[in-house]
Amino acid sequence: MMIPFGHALAFAAALFVLGLTCVLLRRQVIMILVGVEIMLNAASLVFVASSAYWQQVDGQIFAIMLMAITAAEVAVALAMVVYLWRRKRTLVADVFNGMRG
């Protein structure tokens, strides 16, 4: 690989900003979760690029751990999506504005 480290970081930053835009722009809860996934992928790109730059194994380990953590997060988040759907029959985030114990 003969690319500068900064270019790999720039791709990751662009991916992260796209994910952030998705979270802020979209109103469906599912699309907000998709934005979170995009941001997590940007983080794992940074980890893997850093691993190659410093020639160390640790970055790749953290990328793998990030995947496991994302799998757990998605399981809970999608269960919540199904719960919200059963409650209000919609997934537009603006609808969910009340709390009750």
């Binding site: 690989m1 003969m2 690319i3 500068p4 480290f5 900064g6 790999a8 970081l9 690029a49 691993s51 190659a52 730059y53 020639q55 194994v57 790749q60």
Partner: peptide
């Protein structure tokens, strides 16, 4: 950052 222009060396794990 000056590290940004350094190239990523050949690496395979």
């Amino acid at each position: 950052d000056p590290a940004a222009s350094k190239e990523i060396g050949a690496f395979y794990l």
